[in-house]
Design a protein around this nucleic acid. Structure first.
Length: 423
RNA sequence: GUGGCCGUAGCUCAUCGGGUAGAGCACCGGAUUGUGGCUCCGGAGGUGGGGGGUUCGAGACCCCUCGGCCACCCCA
């Protein structure tokens, strides 16, 4: 219909939705601050190589979902599909890894996928990453931090925690071989997608949605049996810490993550209230990634939250939006002299009441229509200037929310009057 | 990339292949020379996503295309 549209999957976030975003962002920011995390701001574009080397060459993200283009000098660049790779790159580049680092960032990510509920091509994440801590106490901290966030947002009852350990790279390699052997012998019983995954990413077959495939997996080798001792011990310790903190979770032995860099602890917060895209927050450990990207071997762990999905959850669960949209004062006037007076008074009132929302009617229109706009603005009070008021040096103050009563107030008295009226 | 459903006013939707495409909400004006909300009256707003075909005649039927939603894949 309209000729110019936004790019598919890249949505405008409208004024009626932004209060949810602002409230969510404010809560997240304060929480991370309180846990001692520092914000890092990262570029949206990186060398394509960064993502190929971190996420994995054969993942769907790298193979078919990246927005990749040549810069003017012929270098291949990519709109970031996720934040961890950039954060690791930045930490290495800026020498942040000499001491443990607790970092977070927020911003848009880009993946070329078919949009659906809870998924778009430009979406927003808040990512949290910790470098230099190998022990599972930090795993627990991240999980407890996220759990606290759900409580603060009022959605704790709508999300559940799933947990798994996928072990060391070596353990996973051995398990992958065993799984491939088992499934190859039963290739015909696999669904089409899983047959393909047998070549590309066999572990992903574990969380296939196909019931027949899931049934087939019941007798398959179990990842847990292949874990190395350290991964086992750390996973047990993590569970002990969560138990002690009273944090419920479900160990899901079939939880694997799509990105190559994960090892040991992986976790997801999921909800059943968002349709097919139930993962609201997910992450895990990536002890080899820093070294893989050219830094000194440094353990890492992190997670990312999908802001669109959280906003959906907040609105679907009817969680309040604390940012008040209604105006406090709406100023109207009739005639040029009154308009001049109202404009000057508006500025003076903004000096006195910087915390209040003061809307000055602009664009003319009949008095009636101005009053209608005043009502629609949601303002508590309308301040009215006409010829009489200007001549008398007064202002008519009308209560739009109560009985509609109106008082005439001398210009000099206006601040005191409004201070009482707005209290 | 695959599949299902759907594109009519700013929004939500009606309209059996037959006259000038309607309603509610929103918007503008009036009833009320300077007073919103409730009510009443009036007004403006549409290349029916786009293109082609069938037909005397298409918003409706057929084909193509673009777009939206949901699901698969994948993922936050």
């Amino acid at each position: 219909m309209t000729k110019l549209r936004a790019i598919r999957g890249m949505n405008d976030i409208l004024p009626e939705e932004t209060p949810y975003w602002q409230s969510l962002e404010r809560t997240v920011r304060a929480l991370l601050h309180s846990y001692g995390y520092g914000e890092i701001r990262l570029p949206i574009v990186e060398h394509t190589e960064l993502f190929k080397r971190s996420i994995g060459e054969v993942t769907d993200i790298v193979e078919k979902e990246m927005y990749t283009f040549d810069d003017r000098n012929g270098e291949s660049m990519t709109l970031r599909p996720e934040g961890t790779a950039s954060c690791v790159r930045a930490a290495i580049q800026n020498g942040l890894l000499a001491v443990p680092q607790r970092l977070w960032y927020a911003g848009p990510m880009f993946r070329y996928e078919r949009p659906q509920k809870g998924r778009q091509r430009q979406f927003h994440q808040v990512g949290v990453e910790v470098f230099g801590i190998a022990t599972p106490d930090i795993d627990a901290e991240l999980i407890l931090l996220s759990a606290r966030l759900w409580r603060q947002l009022g959605i704790a009852d709508d999300v559940t925690l799933e947990l798994n350990s996928i072990g060391s790279n070596e353990a996973r390699k051995a398990y992958r071989a065993a799984l491939v052997e088992y499934l190859s012998a039963r290739r015909e019983q696999l669904d089409e997608d899983s047959q393909r995954r047998l070549e590309s990413n066999p572990l992903r077959i574990l969380d296939s949605k196909n019931p027949d495939t899931q049934a087939l997996l019941n007798d398959a080798p179990a990842l847990a049996d292949y874990l190395d001792d350290e991964a086992k011990a750390d996973f047990a310790r993590l569970q002990a810490l969560l138990d002690a903190a009273g944090q419920p979770y479900r160990v899901n032995p079939r939880l694997v993550r799509g990105l190559d860099y994960y090892n040991k602890t992986v976790f997801e917060w999921v909800t059943d209230r968002l349709g097919a895209q139930g993962t609201v927050c997910a992450g895990g450990r990536y002890d080899g990634l820093v070294e893989q990207l050219g830094g000194k071997a440094t353990p890492g762990i992190g997670f990312a939250m999908g802001m669109e999905r959280l906003v959906l959850l907040l609105s679907e669960t009817g969680q309040a939006l604390p940012v008040e949209q209604a105006a406090d004062l709406y100023l109207v006037s009739m005639g040029e002299a009154a308009e001049t007076e109202a404009m000057a008074r508006a500025e003076a009132l903004r000096d006195v009441f910087p915390e209040h929302r003061i809307v000055l009617h602009t664009g003319g229109g009949s008095f009636k229509s101005q009053m209608k706009k005043a009502d629609r603005s949601g303002a508590r009070l309308a301040l009215i200037w006409g010829e009489d008021e200007v001549n008398a040096g007064t202002c008519a103050v009308k209560d739009l929310r109560e009985d509609g009563g109106q008082e005439t107030v001398a210009a000099a008295e206006l601040p005191q009057y409004l201070r009482a009226a707005l209290a």
